[in-house]
């Protein structure tokens, strides 16, 4: 009996090839104009580009509009509970390092109810892609202030405007020990979104990507400027980060930023006049929890021998 330890890698690659249709699930039920549609399209494009076997790919989400995404991708999906996508993904990856894991969270999920998990998942640095689909509002529960809602922006719970300065997810992630990949992109720039997702997927470690994302219903004004005025966008470019030459014609502002420069990344992550997109930080040398915890597998016979030996220590 070949008793595999759960940490063993199951199976290997094969010669199937996958087309977009292989990853398409049922028709999404998001509002027209919702940024989630663009993210879904980019994700499916990534799956095709990387030829990820659908049965060996898992999308894990929490609760919220964006957390419906796994339902619309034909891979395995785990649509769990609010704020807790990361612990579930941690469990999946610990038991099954062979699976490709994507985590999809909203700003409520990641930066509010699940904030503790976000910090610790950053530190575990397990090989997965974590997408924060940040529309600066609670949409599904109908317009409540989220931690990333800009100060002064009104909602149903804070009608005179959000009381506090918005939480900056990039600063928070960059401040956490063992962070290994931090990027920001915008769903209305599909080429940049795709390139960033691809860089995140190819990075070995916890790839945190904040996707700026419109909510046509509740936060359209917040993204209006970024969408209509290329001048407010500043691209971080580097060979080790994300560089999309085609965008240079549209977006005039760019900074050459080495993703290994953590101090620089932290400075750039601070709020400024411009919306900065690109890879802020990337360091593949950071230790990965699943590598540290990987143990050899034992056969049933070996296990039983070990157990008997252990019982012997307790023998009367």
């Amino acid at each position: 009996m070949n008793e595999l330890c759960s940490l063993a890698v199951y199976g290997a690659g094969d010669d199937r090839s996958f087309a977009l249709g292989d990853y398409e699930g049922p028709l999404p039920r998001w509002c027209p104009g919702c940024g989630d549609h663009s993210v879904l399209a980019a994700v499916q494009r990534l799956l095709v580009a990387e030829q990820l076997a659908p049965e060996r790919t898992v999308f894990v989400s929490g609760i919220g509009c964006s957390s419906r995404l796994p339902h619309y991708v034909r891979t395995y999906g785990f649509h769990g509970i609010h704020g807790r996508a990361l612990p579930v993904a941690t469990g999946i990856k610990l038991h099954r390092p062979d699976l490709s894991v994507f985590v999809v969270m909203g700003d409520g999920d990641c930066t509010s109810i699940g904030a503790g998990h976000w910090l610790h998942a950053t530190r575990y640095n397990m090989d997965m892609v974590a997408l924060l689909l940040d529309n600066n509002i609670y949409g599904l529960t109908k317009n409540q202030t989220s931690p990333t809602t800009p100060q002064g922006y009104p909602s149903n719970t804070q009608p005179r405007g959000s009381y506090l300065p918005a939480l900056n997810p990039l600063e928070a992630t960059l401040g956490m020990t063992n962070a290994s990949f931090v990027a920001q992109t915008a769903e209305w720039i599909p080429a940049h979104l795709f390139a960033t997702l691809q860089a995140a997927h190819r990075h070995r470690g916890f790839s945190f990507v904040r996707v700026l994302q419109r909510c046509p219903k509740y936060t359209a004004p917040l993204f209006e400027e970024g969408m209509r005025k290329p001048d407010v966008i500043e691209l971080l470019v580097h060979d080790d980060g994300v560089t999309v030459p085609a965008l240079a014609g549209v977006y005039k502002h760019s900074i050459h930023h080495d993703p290994l420069d953590l101090d620089g990344a932290r400075r750039l992550a601070e709020e400024g006049d411009r919306i900065r997109l690109g890879v802020f930080f990337r360091d593949e040398s950071r230790s990965r929890y699943e590598d540290i915890r990987r143990l050899r597998s034992f056969t049933a016979e070996e296990k039983i021998d070990l157990l008997e030996g252990e019982l012997e220590r307790h023998a009367v």
């Binding site: 579930v88 941690t90 469990g91 610790h120």
Partner: peptide, 12 residues
Amino acid sequence: AAAGVAIGASYA
């Protein structure tokens, strides 16, 4: 998180 990790592992 302990419950979530166990559930994620059990699921997979």
